[in-house]
Design a protein around this nucleic acid. Structure first.
Lengths: 244, 244
DNA sequence: CAGTGGTCTAGACCACAGC
DNA sequence: CTGTGGTCTAGACCACTGG
């Protein structure tokens, strides 16, 4: 990225693309060609001036690139070129309960709370009645990448003194008949944002897993992965691919 | 949502949450309590005035809700409450080539193009040499939900006259040994945006599938799903769950 | 403390849908 | 044409990091 430049063309043909999009494309090319992982970019005010746009417009482009995992921004620090996304294996192929050996998740706590309506419905329980939850974290490459809430149908019924490990052990005692998963886009709530080192509303990949035994859903996991840094892999071996 | 209201509390405790986030939460609650699918919201200028914020701030909250699949916005029309996300089955369990019978995708074209670097690398071919691509669309509930580019290692070599169906047939003639998938967050390019009836940069779930035969990747699919309207399901049966 | 990204404002104009 | 969401601007202030 050289001296003052206007990548933007607005005169002439009517259906011109939005400036922030042209800017994103220009920055993508610059990132590919002239920057290496970890390198810090000029600050936003400087970049905006350099491209001849308002800071809000420049930020729209940076937002895109951060969403795509190309950039990493930290308040008070600066904007750096992000490393390729971390591949996280989430294949349902390995039919195991959570907490089995070589399970990379770490238990961070447990609670007894009224489940969200959707969870209560899936488990077939009363939304008002408290349900035990196991809280777990996933760390990859030294960075927190996901947080999970695992709602379990307790057998035998749990109380305030039941530990997370006891809840997991109770699940493992049953035969696991099946599990299915769903992935969708969501946004981090305040607590998740704190745990993932992001701001509230940060984009996350929400993975919902249902564990069934005897034709009945007995546990339901809600895992939120940082969408900017994670690639979820299903299958034999992780991919070494970056978009486009 | 009644008359003029300020949901926002900024005085007092220092670490107050951002207005746009409080606004998102307030709107989420209102959506749950007082709105039904398809209902149109007041226009943005009215809403902003109602909540006592600038339109840009209100829009930040609406952006979130649209990302989460709660709202649908159409330029020149208005903002409506979105229906629950459509579940799309993408389990790699069904080990079949694309284009098998009961494959819900529709072929829309083919091309002979130089592949993106990542694709060339995965297939082990020269990034400069043109590669055949099959273009396909996926429609669910009458709405376009995904677009796919399927890069194939042609056997025998394809030329400009090879049709999409011939390319798919050539793949199906080989034994499919394995496939693996990866899901990550991306943004729609100009063409995808057009096909998905969105604006450029719209959030998409990027699903990369590798098809292997004889220990070699012979085809690679890049499918982009509308992140606002789709939920990808892996497993026995689709889930009927909405976040929180 | 200075410098960074994050938030918020008030206003203007554009692109598009539908009447 | 009117009304909608989409884009863009210029500026201010806040929250956080690091020296």
């Amino acid at each position: 990225m050289g001296a003052t430049q206007r990548v933007v063309s607005r005169r002439g043909a009517p259906p011109a693309e939005p400036k922030h999009w042209q800017l994103r494309n220009a920055l993508t090319d610059a990132l590919d060609a002239e920057f290496s992982v970890g390198q810090v970019l000029p600050d936003e005010r400087t970049l905006a001036a350099r491209f001849g746009v308002a800071r809000a417009t420049l930020r729209q482009a940076l937002d895109q690139l951060e969403l795509e995992g190309r950039l990493q921004r930290r308040r008070g620090v600066g904007t750096t070129v992000a490393p390729p996304r971390v591949g996280v294996d989430v294949s349902p192929a390995r039919q195991t309960w959570p907490g089995a050996e070589d399970d990379p998740w770490t238990v961070t706590g447990r609670a007894l709370v009224p489940p969200p309506p959707a969870v209560a419905h899936a488990l077939g329980v009363d939304p008002a009645g408290p349900l035990p939850v196991v809280l777990r974290d996933l760390v990859a490459d030294g960075q927190p990448v996901a947080m999970e809430r695992l709602y379990a149908l307790p057998t035998p019924p749990a109380d305030e003194t039941t530990t997370a490990d006891e809840l997991l052990a109770a699940l493992r005692r049953q035969p696991l008949e099946g599990q299915d998963r769903a992935v969708e886009l969501g946004s981090a709530d305040a607590e998740q944002a704190r745990g993932l080192d992001r701001l509230p509303g940060a984009p996350v990949l929400l993975v919902t897993t249902r564990y069934t035994t005897a034709g009945r859903v007995v546990a339901l996991s809600r895992a939120t992965y940082r969408a900017d840094t994670c690639r979820l892999t299903f299958g034999d071996q992780p991919l070494a691919l970056t978009p486009s």
